[in-house]
Computed example of a mutant assay.
Amino acid sequence: MFTAFIAATWPGGQVQTSLAQTRPSVSSNEVAKVSPRKESAPRKDAARSDPHTTGFVTASAHSTEFAIAQDIATTLASGQESGPHGEVALRVLPMVGNGGIRNLIDILGLAGADMAIAPVLLADRLRESGSLGDIGNKLVYITPLFVEEFHLLARAEIQSLSDLAGKRVNFGEEGSAGAVLGREVLNNLEVKVSESNLALDAALEGMRKGQISAAFLVSGKPVSFLARYAQDDGLHFLSIPYSKAMLQHDYLPSALRHEDYPEIIGVSDTVDTIAIKCALFVYNWPIRSERFPLLELFVQTLFSRFPEFLGDGHHPKWREVNLAALLPGWRRFQPAERWLQQQSGGEAALRRAFGRFLEQKPITNPPDREQLFQDFMRWQQRQQGR
């Protein structure tokens, strides 16, 4: 079932020479190409999975998303009692993915791949396309995570998006968030480029040699791999303008700053960009299945130890995470929903208490009110960890 998709997205180290503008913006119809025909959601084989190991599909090894998965694996591995042969009750195994639609397909059909970090926008499109049938009961979420910023790194002679016209731009491996959404963004901005689909390290090497003019990466800032490239290399970030049209496609305005990339961005400089939301999705194992107790243990352990991730020793993206936040249109994994409901009566009770608090200081702007609530939730999570 995955043959057509894998063949279409396999990078193979080859440079594609087609113009990005000649390819239409990604729609639910294009997402349907993931599968050669419409069918029911794939079935998982629990028998081939390690009963103590949960597979965590993420983006490339250079990405922030992979670092987050490694952070979870390392932190949750500590503090567990081990058996006579050193085994632990819960082991989280990060699995390198492409950070795009393929991550979600792996959850749905790959034995041992229980969950993944993936862009919400791509999950929405996969579900709406119907290419894998009704996946709403198979794919659920544990928690929304953070926003992933669009990074467009360019050579010194490229000073604006218009300078990229006719130049070779790397979008990342085919099917990745960078390839799908980066291509869509340049199409919408009517910038025609020659496309390549290399891994990030190969693309950066091509930029040093002058073979590639710019490279796209969609990942949460700061990406440590990029942070190691200083201004001496002549590489810098290009601004990506935000428009109301992008809002309709679920993009968010964002910015890259000196504190994110001190070796690339000047002290007083800011690079405008866009971003998308990502979430931790999970396969909705039936309650009586062999895998359900392991995923339930994962949720309980991650949520109860969440305050540990807010410290300085962890990636700053953790501070954007609100475990109780909702993902419109999607069902939350039952153990996660139950855990949240058990904490002070759940999010609904917290929102009621927060509403009573705000009655003393009314907020007329709804976005301001919601932002205050998210800050309140993060504060409460920190208090629980004390």
Score class of each variant (00 low, 15 high):
Ala8His: 09
Leu295Ala: 02
Gln300Ser: 13
Gln341Asp: 14
Ser239Phe: 00
Ser25His: 00
Gly79Gln: 06
Pro84His: 05
Arg378Gln: 12
Ala69Lys: 05
Asn137Met: 10
Gln334Asp: 11
Asp368Val: 10
Pro51Asn: 07
Arg127Tyr: 00
Glu205Ile: 08
Pro253His: 09
Ile158Asn: 01
Ala165His: 07
Leu145Lys: 04
Leu323Val: 05
Asp163Ser: 15
Ala348Leu: 11
Ala279Phe: 03
Val218Tyr: 01
Lys192Thr: 13
Arg102Thr: 11
Ala47Val: 13
Ala202Ser: 14
Leu238Asn: 07
Leu145Arg: 02
Gln343Val: 15
Gly182Leu: 06
Glu205His: 06
Leu145Thr: 09
Val180His: 03
Phe2Asn: 10
Glu263Asp: 12
Glu190Arg: 13
Val185Met: 09
Glu259His: 13
Ile107Asp: 10
Val191Arg: 06
Ser243Lys: 06
Ala7His: 10
Ala7Gln: 11
Lys244Tyr: 02
Asp124Ser: 10
Glu370Asp: 14
Pro367Asn: 07
Ser344Pro: 01
Thr3Ala: 10
Pro262Ser: 06
Arg288Asn: 14
Ala116Gln: 09
Ala116Val: 08
Gly13Gln: 09
Ser40Asp: 11
Phe56Tyr: 13
Ala324Phe: 07
Glu174Thr: 11
Gly166Cys: 08
Tyr229Pro: 01
Gly175Arg: 06
Leu122Ile: 13
Ile135Arg: 01
Leu372Glu: 11
Leu19Tyr: 10
Ile158Val: 15
Leu372Asp: 08
Val180Glu: 04
Val180Ser: 05
Ala32Trp: 06
Ser213Asp: 14
Ser162Cys: 00
Ser239Met: 04
Ala41Asn: 05
Ala202Pro: 00
Leu302Ser: 02
Pro241Val: 08
Leu326Trp: 00
Glu81Pro: 01
Asn187His: 14
Ser27Trp: 01
Leu235Ser: 02
Arg332His: 02
